[in-house]
């Protein structure tokens, strides 16, 4: 395998380990560009007047595929492209709006060597703004192990 491809040292991973924190300044442009890229034309994601006057939200809000995209980016920036996201679940408690400094924090909640299937790594990701909980996600990724050098092989 190309040595330039980022590869996580999985031998040191343990339950309770924290991932580096990521902070992103969320603008209207970021919310609208991603809503359009996910082909989501609901006005709540691009129309300020609709959002505030009809939907009763404080501003336009980030859609769920965009949240999934940021969570996926957060994890694979850390784990590298060999990490294959297999399962992602999340609960959204509160809206994410322009002007927010959105903070991503991750904690490893499970490490399981599945031998021929690779290393299963579960991470709990918390999205907060100024300490307020917005979204909580649980993501299962498959990583290389001794038996399987590439979790994408065979797919």
């Amino acid at each position: 395998m190309n040595p330039d491809i980022k590869r996580l040292d999985t031998s040191v991973l343990a339950v309770g380990d924290k991932l580096p924190v990521l902070q992103v300044d969320i603008s209207a442009q970021k919310i609208i560009a991603a809503a359009a890229a996910t082909r989501d034309w609901q006005p709540l994601h691009h129309d300020y007047a609709f959002a505030t006057q009809k939907a009763g939200t404080p501003d336009i809000i980030m859609n769920s595929p965009t949240q999934a995209g940021w969570i996926s980016k957060y994890l694979t920036d850390w784990a590298g492209p060999l990490a294959r996201v297999q399962r992602m679940s999340f609960k959204m408690k509160d809206a994410i709006c322009p002007g927010s400094a959105l903070c991503f924090e991750g904690v490893i909640s499970r490490v399981e060597d599945r031998v021929d299937e690779g290393l299963a790594l579960e991470v709990e990701v918390l999205l907060t703004v100024a300490g307020d909980f917005k979204t909580k996600a649980r993501v299962l990724m498959m990583l290389p192990n001794e038996q399987l050098q590439n979790p994408w092989s065979g797919l």
């Binding site: 992103v24 560009a33 965009t66 995209g69 940021w70 980016k73 492209p81």
Partner: peptide
């Protein structure tokens, strides 16, 4: 479409 989305969430995953 893929690049539009990845650009919008700043995802540089080479895949």
């Amino acid at each position: 479409l893929i690049e539009n989305f990845c650009s919008s969430v700043e995802d540089g995953n080479p895949l």
